[in-house]
């Protein structure tokens, strides 16, 4: 196993689930409860020193019991290494602890995850939609059960009938 993954496992034996290495990328899967503590460890531990947040994303696996996967990718400027931290969330309890207090840049990226997949973040300072309109009624567009053409919100718009006026 990659030494960084081993360090996380040694520090969080309960929270750590597995580590994958593929095409040179290191990904660590952790328990949702341990995510915030591991994030803090990655930022503050001098051997990790992951001070740069690269990406927050999410993947939808509708057939699996824990449906959503939240993905954080962080980078260390000092050690020049990248770690991807993933955690799984079931649909009926769709909450993850926000990492905005560790990396403030997570604010917008977590809002995007909420907007697109409907995963909510505890202790997030501003949990609103970001790209879709605030009153978007159709749910979360990047979920797999959302059709590509949308659910027909546009069809309910009232249009002026210009021909009738003349």
């Amino acid at each position: 196993m990659h030494p960084l993954a081993e360090a996380i496992q040694a520090r969080f034996p309960d929270g750590f689930l597995s580590a994958q290495e593929w095409r040179g990328d290191l990904a660590v899967t952790v328990k949702r409860e341990a995510l915030h503590a591991i994030g803090r460890f990655l930022k503050d531990d001098p051997a990790m020193a992951c001070d740069y947040i690269v990406l927050v994303s999410s993947v939808d696996w509708p057939d699996e019991e824990e449906r959503f996967e939240v993905v954080y990718e962080v980078y260390s400027i000092r050690h020049r290494h990248r770690i991807r931290v993933k955690t799984r969330v079931p649909e009926h309890d769709c909450y993850v602890d926000s990492l905005t207090d560790i990396w403030p840049g997570a604010n917008f990226m977590e809002r995007e995850v909420f907007d697109m997949m409907g995963i909510r973040f505890n202790n997030h300072p501003d949990m609103r939609r970001i790209l879709m309109p605030d009153d978007f009624p159709e749910g979360y567009p990047l979920r797999k059960d959302f059709p590509l053409q949308g659910k027909g919100w546009r069809d309910t718009f009232d249009f002026l009938n210009e021909g009738a006026a003349s």
Binding site: Y52, I53, I77, W103, P104, A106
Partner: peptide, 21 residues
């Protein structure tokens, strides 16, 4: 530099703060 990293800035915006990335 520290804030710029925390906010995930990159490119010239990050290097302007003195981070060699």
């Amino acid at each position: 530099a520290e804030d710029a990293l925390g906010y995930g800035l990159s490119g010239p915006t990050l290097r302007g703060s003195g981070v060699d990335y």
